[in-house]
């Protein structure tokens, strides 16, 4: 019934991801995460979304405020105000393209914003370009027993216009379907 997921960053299993710190207009260090699982069968309907970090919150405001701000950065319609949490799933191409102002969403990259990854209903399906062996047969499917597990890159871009210094926290989630 249950499936164990191991997240690897630079080859080591992790229990949290710190995206780092920066100042206005910075793109923080890109993190490349590998998704491993011990299921006997493939995971299907795999989707990313973000939620408030309710437990163990150590940010400067509230979990709800941080989540709202991250999504709002992605919603902004001016270059200086745009930013947020970005995902690139083109591991095959070594993550060549990232969201920018005016192009928040592409075939294998996206910005978490209103209507995109802001709830499980709007979860973003994993792309086939995540460079696993065997390859993902179609979007949202992570094979079992991979010799190379699928990976994606993520980073936070701080809008140029942000005026409140502090720690922001949120939870990125992976939802999937599994048959034993």
């Amino acid at each position: 019934m249950t499936v164990n997921i191991t997240w690897k960053l630079s080859g080591s299993a992790v229990t949290a991801v710190d995206h780092g710190s920066g100042t206005n207009g910075d793109s923080l260090t890109t993190k490349v995460l590998f998704i491993e699982h011990d299921g006997l069968n493939q995971l299907t309907e795999c989707k990313f979304w973000i939620d408030a970090k309710i437990s163990d919150y150590t940010g400067n405001l509230t979990p709800a405020a941080d989540l709202a701000e991250i999504k709002a950065w992605g919603d902004q319609e001016t270059e200086d105000a745009f930013g947020g949490f970005f995902i690139s799933m083109n591991a095959v191409g070594s993550f060549p393209t990232w969201p920018v102002y005016g192009t928040k969403l592409g075939t294998d990259y996206f910005t978490f914003c209103t209507g995109t990854g802001d709830s499980i209903e709007n979860g973003v399906t994993l792309h086939t370009n995540m460079n696993s062996t065997p390859a993902m047969s179609s979007s949202g499917i992570i094979p079992a027993s991979c010799s190379i597990w699928p990976s994606f890159a993520c980073r936070v871009h701080i809008p140029a216009e942000v005026d409140t210094v502090g720690i922001r926290q949120f939870v990125q989630k992976l939802r999937f379907t599994y048959t034993s």
């Binding site: 019934m1 249950t2 499936v3 164990n4 997921i5 191991t6 997240w7 960053l9 299993a13 992790v14 229990t15 949290a16 991801v17 995460l33 299907t44 309907e45 990313f48 939870v171 990125q172 989630k173 992976l174 939802r175 999937f176 379907t177 599994y178 048959t179």
Partner: peptide
Amino acid sequence: SDDLEVDVGVSGPA
């Protein structure tokens, strides 16, 4: 089938 969920970056059972 079951729907399961994990926090990204937090290794462990879904």
